[in-house]
Amino acid sequence: MRKTALTFLLGALLAGPAAALTCGDTAAGFGAWKREFAQYAAQNGVGARGLAALDSATYATRTINADRNQRSFRYELDEFMRIRGGDTIVAQGRRQIENNRDFFLQLELTYGVPSSIIVAIHGMETGFGNFMGDSNVVSAITTLAYDCRRPAFFTPHALAALQLVDRGAISPNSTGAMHGELGHTQFLPGNILAYGVDGNGDGIVDMTNRADSLYSTANFLRQKGWQTGQSYAEGGPNFRVIQEWNAAGVYQRAIALIASRIDA
Rank of each mutant, 00 (worst) to 15 (best):
L162W: 03
E125M: 04
R261H: 14
H184C: 05
I242A: 05
V46C: 07
S231F: 08
L188C: 02
Q70K: 12
Y215D: 11
S171C: 11
I141N: 01
N219Y: 05
T63M: 01
M124C: 08
K34Y: 09
A28W: 12
K224G: 07
R95H: 11
G199W: 02
A140E: 04
E108C: 08
P237T: 06
A19K: 15
H122M: 14
Y75R: 06
G50I: 05
V165S: 03
I170T: 05
Y251T: 08
N200R: 06
V205A: 04
R167L: 11
V90N: 01
F220V: 07
G127H: 04
T4E: 15
E234S: 13
Y146R: 07
I121A: 03
N69D: 15
M207R: 05
Q163A: 11
D147T: 09
D78P: 04
H157T: 15
Q230A: 13
A52I: 08
R71P: 07
G85M: 12
G183N: 03
T143C: 06
G168N: 11
L105I: 13
D198F: 12
L164I: 11
G47W: 05
G199R: 02
G168F: 03
T88S: 13
G180D: 02
Q243N: 13
K3Q: 14
F104L: 15
V113Y: 09
Q96W: 05
G127Y: 01
R150I: 10
I255V: 13
P114C: 09
R82M: 13
L21T: 09
G180V: 04
H179C: 07
I117E: 00
G201K: 09
A218I: 02
A15N: 15
A91W: 09
C148K: 14
G183W: 11
V90C: 07
V138D: 01
G47D: 05
V241A: 02
D202F: 08
Q223E: 11
N238C: 09
D263N: 08
C23E: 11
S116I: 03
A41E: 08
L14W: 14
A194E: 07
K3Y: 14
A254P: 04
V205R: 01
I262L: 15
A5G: 10
W226C: 01
A254H: 03
L6W: 01
Q243W: 01
R35T: 15
T58N: 10
G29W: 02
L13E: 06
